[in-house]
């Protein structure tokens, strides 16, 4: 009987709900390759993304609402990514981290690599780089938080294309 995706929530309540949602992201690190090391570096002391409210290393997909796919997606791994994405509860967000997850990266012509994780799951923010600097992931998280602040869940879960206000 959830209402937030069926009813257009009035702006003051929407502000509060979005604010709460954007500052309490639990991240499910789907680390596949070298970008996972950069993700771990971002979660450590020097560039800390926990100060943005993103708590690292959720215990499983069911306790997460942000999935960061970092690394090369091979054809053999693709069903697992899809299954884990579907096991996450709504509302969920995906950051594609690194050029392999964005578009296949340096392995675009390989016989076993999927050209980007957006071939199987919807992606909210793409962070380019090979591997991206930890600061790039921090910027990606901030961009995602801006997107969450300005979104309405009804629009996100409807079939129409999403319009995101610039922010």
């Amino acid at each position: 009987m959830g209402l937030s995706d069926k009813v257009e929530v009035p702006p003051p309540i929407r502000f509060v709900l979005n604010w709460g949602r954007k500052y309490s992201l639990w991240v499910f690190n789907f680390g596949l390759a070298c970008c996972a090391i950069e993700f771990i570096a971002t979660s450590m002391a020097e560039h800390d993304f926990i100060r943005m409210g993103v708590i690292p290393f959720a215990h499983g997909p069911r306790q997460a609402d942000l999935m960061v796919v970092s690394g090369t997606l091979t054809d053999k791994m693709a069903p697992a990514v899809k299954r884990l994405y579907e096991q996450m509860p709504e509302p969920k967000y995906v950051i594609s981290f690194g050029s392999c997850a964005n578009c296949g990266g340096p392995y675009w012509d390989s016989y076993s690599v999927a050209k980007g994780v957006d071939q199987i799951i919807p992606v909210d923010v793409y962070v380019p780089g090979c591997p991206p600097r930890p600061e790039a992931l921090l910027q990606g998280i901030i961009k995602l938080q801006t997107k969450i602040q300005n979104e309405s869940l009804k629009q996100r879960y409807s079939a129409e294309p999403l319009t995101v206000e610039a922010g």
Partner: peptide, 21 residues
């Protein structure tokens, strides 16, 4: 919480978690 959250039941959400396989 029940009023606010979106409801999207899917078959895969009821499967046992075994790292995606």
């Amino acid at each position: 919480a029940m009023l606010v959250r979106p409801t999207r039941p899917r078959r895969e959400k009821y499967l046992t978690y075994e790292c995606g396989i």
